[in-house]
Design a protein around this nucleic acid. Structure first.
Lengths: 344, 344
DNA sequence: ATTGCATCCGAAAGCGCTTTCGGTGTAAGT
DNA sequence: ACTTACACCGAAAGCGCTTTCGGATGCAAT
């Protein structure tokens, strides 16, 4: 069912039918009604490819998947894509998902993507501290939004959670439990989120009057093995930490393992706090105390915000900072001492 | 940089340039070389929208995300999309991701999708026993592949793991450990995979000469709460099972919890075997014995197979059945008896 | 009756490509 | 020298829409 056939059927020209369907004001109410009714009756729907070519609007946005280096499935993309897809489909727009083969090729890939006309906007995730992709998009004045932030994030749109504050909360909590030697299990700091969380850790130590011990900071992969190895190293030192803060729940789970392997019990001898609020943490041994961040609506939010920007909104008006909350389960507790042990 | 400008620059017509770029045989080697070199030099890349309209090839396929009812993020979609996207991007094709608002609307949505011309093929996931979407795609003779299978799966392409056999392996293993009362934690059987795994359970009991006790079968949600509740119900019966087989690792984790809550220790008093091989199962209490299925390449495979079908391949030639393997961790063990306990 | 002004629709160009067809030039065949 | 045959490129239509522009019509105002 093409526009041409519909027009013939209605004894109108294609242009008129098109304008009637698109609610142009220069079509009488009568014929507009007639056209729209017949179109519905005959099941006419404009060919999106033709419309996109004619209007120059791609009617689609791309989600750039974070490269999952550790070959670990990212637990959030599914939820995020659901929300994004919903936001877009209400407009009849498409959601494209891309992933570059390597991080080096990403800027090039992105450049090709935005110059190809296939998409009207882009959502970027897990940015680096200085992200070439963000600079590229800014220079091209191409609509985009970032899930997360880079160092300079004043001039573009983003949706993020204040993980610096979150880590501060975690550290403060541990300090309030008496911990002074707190290990930090981090990730490579070219990821901005990793840097920010490290900053949060340092700040928290500072305002709690605790001297920073560089030996207590470990940078490792974002998975359980990374956490286990890093925590193990710290625990085997002469003066091991009594608590750990991790940038990620999966790491934290590895930390739990490292602790148990050494005959200690997490939450008693050594505390650990994760980050993400994975449901799964309810079932670790012991259940994982963690910082939970709202994940459900992020996709939806990102989609709506990006669409507003594509509609001409000022990116600076679309910066949303959520906060994470401490979820106490069982992996945190007061500093363990032999004396306290003896008493109980 | 449009074809028009490139043609003017080369002092050729658009048609000639187009044919040169697309390696038509009626272009002399000399001018072809000249055209391609200049195109590369000037950074010309054909506008995909225009090409798609002109050729009638959408150069894109859609991945239909399974509706995640339980609002739980599906841990595999990320991996799967990565593989799919790689397979497609080698051809310069796009990956669309869609998800219907409700299961009822899905066939309609799918129909609109495939008649809109936006995609050349579809990959469906987690099919129902009798899946209206599959019938729709078959009738429309639209290229598609299914991740999983429905009941009648002779006539279309699919990539699946033999989960019936897998569950049989799990049950056989438990029987070999002396278990006779084996509980089954399943999922709603409109999902074909849930039905198939239930069948595997029943078959395995039969060929092990164990009478089927319907009270030992629980159908519940695919998450930890579902598993915990269902297992709890079974454990509270007068004659509880000594082992559980679950349709999914997340359920199994809930089962572990249900067991521990009742003062029993999983892997000792009660065995449990999960399904999926989630990495996370290494860290449950105790580590979860499970059936692992190869996930890494499924996206890549699905993509390659679908492309072959779009290229005219017979869907029946693209049916791949993988198998899952038992990964023994610590949640399975011989039947517990007071006598054995006394001895040790 | 003429002008003026909306109102409404048709005509046609255009979006940026592809592809068929036909025609020219040149080499080969007799 | 005259076909026959290729090899090669230009011309033009077409993919299915949108959008601008102008012209026809009708009605009110002069």
């Amino acid at each position: 069912m093409s526009l041409k056939r519909l027009a013939e059927h209605l004894e109108l020209t294609e242009g008129t039918v098109s304008r009637a369907l698109n609610n142009y004001p220069d079509i009488s109410a009568k014929t507009r009604k007639r056209v729209q009714e017949q179109a519905a009756a005959l099941g006419y729907r404009a060919n999106p490819l033709a419309r996109r070519l004619a209007t120059g609007v791609a009617e689609a946005v791309a989600y750039i998947m974070p490269e999952n280096n550790s070959s670990i499935s990212d637990p959030f993309v599914s939820q995020l894509l659901t929300g994004l897809s919903r936001a877009l489909s209400e407009r009849g727009w498409d959601l494209l998902v891309t992933q570059s083969v390597s991080a080096e090729e990403e800027p090039d890939m992105l450049h090709k993507l935005i110059t190809s006309g296939r998409v009207s906007g882009v959502v970027l995730s897990r940015p680096f501290k200085n992200d070439a992709r963000i600079k590229l998009l800014q220079q091209a004045k191409f609509p985009f939004i970032v899930h997360g932030r880079s160092v300079d994030h004043e001039d573009y749109a983003w949706y993020d959670v204040d993980s610096q504050a979150a880590i501060t909360v975690a550290v403060d909590h541990l300090v309030s439990l008496g911990h002074q030697r707190i290990g930090f299990i981090g990730a490579p700091t070219y990821y901005n989120f990793a840097q920010v969380r490290l900053d949060g850790y340092k700040d928290a130590l500072a305002h709690n009057g605790i001297a920073l011990d560089p030996d207590l900071i470990a940078i490792t992969e974002l998975n359980d093995d990374g956490g286990e190895r890093a925590a193990g190293d710290l625990l085997d030192r002469p003066d091991p930490p009594t608590a750990f803060v991790c940038v990620n729940d999966t790491q934290a789970i590895g930390v739990l393992a490292a602790i148990r392997v050494r005959g200690l019990v997490p939450g008693k001898h050594v505390s650990v706090i994760g980050y993400d609020g994975l449901r799964f943490g309810r079932h670790t041994n012991p259940p994982l105390t963690t910082m939970v961040q709202p994940q459900e609506h992020s996709g939806r939010q990102l989609g709506d915000m990006l669409l507003s920007i594509i509609d001409g909104g000022d990116p600076k008006d679309f910066q949303e900072l959520r906060s994470a909350e401490l979820l106490r389960r069982k992996s945190d507790g007061p500093v363990w001492t032999k004396e306290a042990e003896a008493e109980s």
